[in-house]
Design a protein around this nucleic acid. Structure first.
Lengths: 204, 204
DNA sequence: CAGTATACCAAACAACTGTTTGTTTTTCTA
DNA sequence: TAGAAAAACAAACAGTTGTTTGGTATACTG
């Protein structure tokens, strides 16, 4: 399963040798939609091909396997989440707690509202596609390292377990995909509420 | 999909008219193991039947469908989690924060260490089995109401959003299934750490 | 010990899965 | 405008899926 199994236009993202009427974007969008809604295993190549207006076999012109297709969607998902979070993270002058809240808000928005690609990253478990699980995990870890920066820069008591704090916060955010329903609370409001629960003293 | 689709011995749990050499427990254990490890959709009736030492078709003596089998496993999972959490919850004399920590520890242990049934409840999404999704959700909600009691009894500032606190904590706990690896940290230690992060003031 | 409900076997079903192969149409390029 | 590369079609493949049907052995009951 080397990178050469993947179509050139997908491998380097350069779109070299790509025709203007290519339905590749349609394929990726359709795959992202199904993966986000039904999960990887519950989506068939026929589902995707049908939604993109083509035949199942034609997908193999772009991707060597269903799992390679997942990688493309997943990578794009990570890219979009990073893109959403980065601006909040780069405001180095801001108050660290406000910065964290903004990072969380961007993270949440990417998972809950900003489309299907971001949702895939949280919804699909790496071991749903065993052959490429390691690569998916690597992509996710790459982003989590980014997120961790927002936690690391907090002015905390020395005793505080920053890793636990990161895991706790990230878990709370990611799990929201389970119960969140649009319209009631905005991702921003939720993020602020979560961060405040951590910041404000609740005990005694 | 009425309850009458289910075998009597499963429907009411009474085991009335059940022969002593029944392999029903084996079936449930095998199903729980596969559902917990691979997920619902990635587990075939042949997987389960094989592990229980019987033929795929024989499962339909007990369950009208794969999804009915899931309900049985799922319900047992909820039952076991409740059973694990209840003792901690019933210690009404204890300090509310310590009580919450104990509830979280029991919850975590049920998800991470106490076997397969509990894991299924977190691992399997209700809409993985659309035909019975509502029943699965109801089971999960039933338990969450129990968990909420531990949060509701905390002595908190009036402004505190208890619902957000519950969602945050439950999310952090449930998501641990994604990253937890046995041996490093015990569920008890993790639960205490999470609760302390909420209780102790981190800001300023 | 006879009879019956229980528990399972054996074999097949149609539908669906990811994937392959050879061919054809279409766009871009020289 | 001829040729080459790109993009897709058309049809099938072997394997797997959940499920059904009819028969059979076994344990329990009276």
């Amino acid at each position: 399963m080397t990178p050469s199994d993947v179509h050139p236009a997908v491998r380097d993202g350069s779109r070299t040798g790509t025709r203007s009427d290519s339905r590749l974007p349609l394929v990726l969008d359709a795959a992202a939609r199904f993966f986000a809604e039904k999960g990887f295993g519950y989506t068939s190549m026929r589902d995707i091909a049908g939604a993109a207006g083509m035949l199942p076999g034609s997908l193999y012109y772009y991707f060597a396997s269903k799992e390679e297709l997942l990688i493309a969607v997943y990578a794009e998902g990570v890219r979009r989440i990073e893109e959403a979070v980065r601006p909040a993270l780069d405001k180095a002058d801001a108050d660290p707690w406000a910065r964290l809240a903004n990072v969380c808000a961007a993270h949440l928005a990417a998972l809950l509202e900003d489309g299907d690609y971001g949702q895939v990253v949280i919804r699909v478990r790496p071991d749903d596609a065993p052959a490429v699980a390691a690569r998916l995990t690597a992509l996710r870890d790459e982003y989590e390292a980014l997120f961790a920066q927002a936690v690391d820069s907090l002015p905390l008591p020395a005793r505080t377990d920053r890793r636990a704090l990161k895991l706790m916060l990230l878990g709370a955010l990611n799990w929201s995909q389970t119960w969140y329903r649009p319209g009631k609370d905005s991702p921003q409001a939720l993020a602020r509420r979560f961060v405040r629960l951590l910041r404000d003293p609740l005990g005694e």
